[in-house]
Each structure stands twice: as C-alpha cells, then as structure tokens.
Design a protein around this nucleic acid. Structure first.
Lengths: 331, 331
DNA sequence: ATGAAAGCGCTAACAA
DNA sequence: TTGTTAGCGCTTTCAT
C-alpha cells in the first residue's frame, strides 16, 4: 500500500511537503500542491490512520456506547450523534453495552486504548467505569441518565414531568385506577418515571398503591409478565403507564391474551414513539422523547469539550411530548 | 498517560520485556511477568492502540457497514457479528450507510484509512466502491445482497423462495387477488421477492398483473402511499405480500385509514419478524429471516478470510421461515 | 516555501 | 530469557 514516501518520490518533493500539501497548509506552492495531489491520486494513496493518530496523539473518532442497539430510542440518538460528528469530519464508532456494566467497561477500555477523542454514553446504572475516562482526561458526555456524583456534561429528558403529564392525561380521560410498569430500581429513568406517575396521583388525590406498580427489565418479556399479573388481580388497573416501547410490546401482548382492548377497556400510554405505535389498533398513545436531538446536543457538547477541556460541565434537560392516540381514550 | 517505557522503568526491565510480558509470550520469566503486571497496574497503563496498530500493520477491528441502523433486520445482523467478533478479541465498528452509495463509499474510505482487518457490508445497489477494498486486499464479505460481478464471500437468504412460499400460503388461505409491495428496482432483495411472488402466481395459474404490484423505497412512507393506491383501484387486491417490516408499518396504517381489517378483509404477510408483529391486532404473519445467523456466519467467513486471503470465495444461502399469524387468515 | 530529521509508542529482529 | 535497536508512516519543529 502506497505510503507518503512513495507519493513524495513520485512528485519529486519531500514527505514534509506532501504532508503539508495534503493537509491544506497554506505555506505550499500551488504548483506543488497540484503535483502532489496528482501523484497521490495516481498511487491511490490513503494516509495511514494509525500512524497519523500516533503522531497527532488523537484520532478524529468519537465512541458512542449505548445500552441497546435494538431500541429505537437509542438508534435515534445514534443518528443525531452521527450527523453532527460527520459535519466536522469525525467518525462515530457505535458500541452496544447491552445494559451490561462489564461490557460497558470493556468498551470504555477499548475507547481509551484507541485514544478516541471522546465518548458519549448512556451509563448503565451504578457503574463507575467512567471514572477511567475522567482519570485519563478523555472527554465524555452522558445521555439519558446522569452519572452518579460525576460532574460531567449530561443530556437528559425531563422524564419525571413527562410521566406525570402522561398520568394526568389518563386520569383526565376518566381512567380511575392507573397502574405503572417501569424499569428496574436504580435505573434513573425508571425511578423518575415512577416518581412522575406518583406525582400525578398525589396531585389528583388518588391513592397510590404498590399493587398497581410493577418493575422489571426494560424488555418485552418482563413487561408481559408484569401486565398479566396486574390484570389478574382482584382489583385490576384500568389504565397503564408503560416506561418504554419494548415493554409496550409485552403489555399489548398480555392484554390481547386476556381479551382486553386498549383504550376502551384499559388506557395505555407508553414512552417512546416507535414506528409501529401509529398503525396498531388502536393507535398507541406515547410520550415522544426527542431522541435525535439528544444525540445532536450531546455531540455538540462533546466537541466543545474536546476543544476545551476546561469548560464547566453542563446539564441539558429536554422536554418530551405527549402524543394522544386511541389507546388512551375510552371511545 | 503512562507509556510502555514508564512501565519498563518502574519494573526495572526493558520495554521489550514489558511488551512480551503483557502480550503473554511464553518466553518471559514468571517473576518478571508479575513485576511488570504490577507496575502496569500501578500506573494504570493502557497500551497505545494506534502505536500498536502501526507497528503490527493491522488493527483487531472489523467494520460493519449496514444500510439502516433503525431496521431491526440489520441490528440483528450486527448482534451476530458482534458476538462472534468479540469471542476472538475483535472490536466491531458499526457504520450506517443509510442506503446511500456515497456514505457507503466514505465509510469504506475510513475503513481503509484506519487499516481495519476486514469489512462486512450490505452493499447499496450498484456501487462499485467495494472495488477499493478488493484493490487494497482488505478482507470483506457481503451480506443480504450479492455484489455485482465480484467474487467475494457472500451470505444471503433465499428470499425468492421465501416470497414464493409466503404467496403460496396466501393463495392457499383463499385469497384471490394477491398483490405485492416491494423495494426499488435494482435492489436485489426487492427484485427477488417480486420474482418469488410471481413464481407462486404462475404455479397457481393466477394471472399476474402489474396493477397489483408497487415498488417504492424500503420505508413506511412509500409503502403507505403504495398500499393506499392499490386499495383504491377498481379491482383492489385482497391480500398483500410486503417486502419488509418498515413497509408493513405503512401498509397497516393505510389499511386502518381505509377501514380495512388485516386478515378478514385483506391478507397480509410481511418480511421480517419485528418485535411488534405479534402484539398487533391481528398478529402479523411474517417471513422471519435468520438475521442473527447471517451476522455470525458473515463474521466467521470474514475471520477466515483475514487469516487466509487466498481462500476461494463462498456463497452461503440461508433459509427463511414463514410464521403464520392472524393477518393471513380470513377468520 | 521547502527539506532534513526527530520522534509519537509499540513490536520484532537480532544479539547477548 | 532478556536487552538493544530498528523501524511502522506520519507530522512538525528547526534549518535553510
């Protein structure tokens, strides 16, 4: 594979000039630039990334560590990050931590090892593996969940408020016994959504009973079981706030099995506006989180921090939007 | 950040010994290994990836270039690739070509530049940017779609047969005018699915009319429009074969808008077993492609080719499975 | 404006 | 078994 010396030889100049010419430094004669360019083209020259990064002591790469590639919420974030990063010539490496602290830690090690310019991640619960990033001075920003006792840039959604509004909406629609299926204790978004749900019950002066609440993994299977349990209690809920779209799949499934129709029989609002939320029957009411925007904001923060590591950390909180569809109306 | 020399100094040995010890070479004294290890731990030493890659002339990284991160079919492939690659210590870099030849080409450039060990990609139609990989001798394998006139490793699904079987099934269920909504002309999977659909009509001695066929992007919006058009014709289809799950979203939406119930009024079979296919009402009949397996097979082929670039190219064709649910039954 | 030369951190010949 | 040393390909002083 052609190296910079090959190009230099062919163009009849030094490697330094080739480097300067190809990197657009102003101090190179126009004619030489052309000659170098032609030689490079002729040889199909591509700079050797590792060599460049070694010399520059940094790669124009950011790592994005998300907890679930199959979750549309996170893929939308990825899109946002990608779009911003590419604008300024950065590549994005997507890593899948699978909500697993060990995998997350491993990817962080890789990121450090490859000397990426920065890391964006949705931290898996209690982990402190981000300390490694902080210790090395690698720029990073957290999305979706704050880092415990870490003063870093964070991009969040006001998910507690969103949960409250969604619950308010269900109550306003005449549902009386609103239940909640949320994620595991300790996962911040799960806790917040539950808190918002309780806020709404309290302000509507409804009693809040633990019999109407279930916590499980953020997956379809757990939610399926939880919903089945809730619905076969003596006093089943007549509405459900569901904490993400994968869970909604499980809940819908459980309701179908019990012959219960969403909306008419049991009101449903789920977090995340999945593509299938609209075409299902009845259409699913959702809390749409600004996932793409989370990604763009996080990417911009990261780039700013890469450029200036002394910036003070900021927390950005974005709002979510309730989209009312058939599943939260009695008619 | 600590370098190998720092570790060497602290352990009182040469850098070569540190390198050997940390890379598990057999020829190092046990006691020294321990000393080196301890020094490395103490300093929090992480080998510099670019330096290592520069020296080794190859990174233990494979690039996976897929045409849509938001499509569950491709994310499942990604999972498969990841799992196999990680087993042998390779990292996977996920890139999103967005079904866009230019983006694909750019990612291929990056892959070459970073000197990745190999590339797995779902080629966007007619592109010849993979030639660049071939020219550089970078190992690669194609998934989902074959490369035009390129003798490389390929992992495919027998999608024509699957489309035929799905159509057979619809006909067997008593649907009389089966239509088809498939992807753009020139995209191999789209063409194959259409061909399989026609195979079935022919062998059932049904006339095949272009009035029952629509081609659009592999997206919800296009399929929505196509379905709406098809259904408002004078002689609308009473069943539809839909070429992927994003399209199915659009089709279902269109049917809802026209007050047409899947199954009872219009039989539906769609490609790809999306998570929401089961909980919708009625549950969606699908052609389940072995996406995860495509990923694992492709990864193994790639690793084999990395190890031995002279291997002759192979084509692996996997089967798909028809899952019959409510949307393809009249009752 | 250009070239010579040093060196980024690591691994692998080659010596000892 | 260990150390010495020479690069991998690039960018960037420092001279010129």
């Amino acid at each position: 594979m052609a190296t910079i010396s090959d190009v230099a030889a062919l163009a009849g100049v030094s490697t330094a000039t080739v480097s300067r010419a190809l990197n657009g430094k102003a101090t190179v004669d126009r004619e030489l630039v052309a000659r170098v360019q032609q030689a490079a083209d002729e040889l199909g020259y591509r700079p050797n990334g590792p060599a460049r990064n070694l010399r520059r002591q940094e790669a124009a790469v950011v790592a994005l560590i998300i907890s679930d590639v199959e979750n549309p919420f996170f893929t939308a974030i990825a899109r946002g990050v990608e779009d911003v990063a590419h604008e300024v010539g950065y590549s994005v490496v997507l890593c899948n931590s699978d909500e697993n602290a060990e995998k997350e830690s491993r990817y962080i090690d890789v990121a450090i090892q490859e000397r990426v310019a920065g890391v964006i991640l949705s931290p898996t619960g209690t982990t402190s593996s981000v300390d490694k990033l902080a210790a090395r001075g690698t720029a990073f920003v957290a999305v979706d969940r704050p880092l415990p006792q870490q003063d870093s840039d964070v991009v969040l959604v006001d998910t507690r408020l969103a949960a409250r509004q969604a619950t308010d909406h269900l109550i306003a629609q005449g549902y009386d016994r609103v239940g909640c299926i949320t994620g595991p204790a300790g996962v911040r978004t799960a806790d917040d959504r539950l808190a918002g749900y309780r806020d709404a019950l309290k302000s509507a002066k409804r009693p809040s009973s633990t019999k109407l609440v279930r916590r499980t993994e953020y997956k379809a299977a757990g939610a399926h079981k939880a919903a089945a349990e809730l619905m076969s209690q003596p006093d089943p809920p007549d509405a459900l706030l569901v904490a993400n779209s994968a869970m909604a799949v499980g809940v819908l499934q459980a309701l179908r099995e019990q012959g219960v129709r969403p909306g008419r029989d049991v009101g449903i609002v789920a977090f995340d506006d999945a593509p299938w939320a609209e075409p299902v029957d009845p259409p699913l009411s959702v809390v749409a989180q600004p996932a793409y925007e989370i990604g763009t904001v996080a990417a911009r923060l990261l780039l700013a921090r890469i450029a200036d590591s002394t910036r003070t950390a900021t927390t950005t909180t974005l709002g979510a939007r309730l989209i009312e569809r058939g599943s939260s109306h009695r008619t």
